[in-house]
């Protein structure tokens, strides 16, 4: 049982907690928060692997994930604001897949 193992399981736990949130919550805002958690799981994994092997690529990948998360949050929130009037922020009511 190496520390890396534990950290990786924890990162998977973060990811699955987020996944559960996206699947279980109907509020779009909560789904976006869950998505953030989903993204932070792999981020932890990357940094842990990088630190364990003493290489800089882990942090590099973390930065990539960060960029993705930033773009995702900005777009997601804009879309949420856009859709909130029509659906009351409930993703199940947005099932016609129209703005």
């Amino acid at each position: 049982m190496t520390p890396l193992n534990i950290l990786l399981v924890l990162s998977a736990g973060l990811f699955f907690a987020g996944l559960f949130g996206v699947a279980a919550r109907r509020t779009i805002l909560m789904q976006l928060i869950s998505l953030e958690i989903m993204l932070s799981g792999p981020a932890l994994g990357f940094v842990a692997v990088g630190a364990y092997h003493g290489s800089v690529e882990g942090t590099g990948m973390f930065l990539m994930v960060l960029g993705l998360a930033a773009a995702e949050v900005a777009l997601g929130l804009a879309i949420y604001l856009h859709m909130r009037r029509a659906t009351g922020g409930d993703s199940d009511l947005a099932h016609r897949l129209r703005g």
Binding site: A23, R26, D92, A94, L97
Partner: peptide, 16 residues
Amino acid sequence: QTGRLRTYVMAIAFGL
């Protein structure tokens, strides 16, 4: 094809 995001996410989770 429910059009509901959650259904798709659950399908992905199941497959995963």
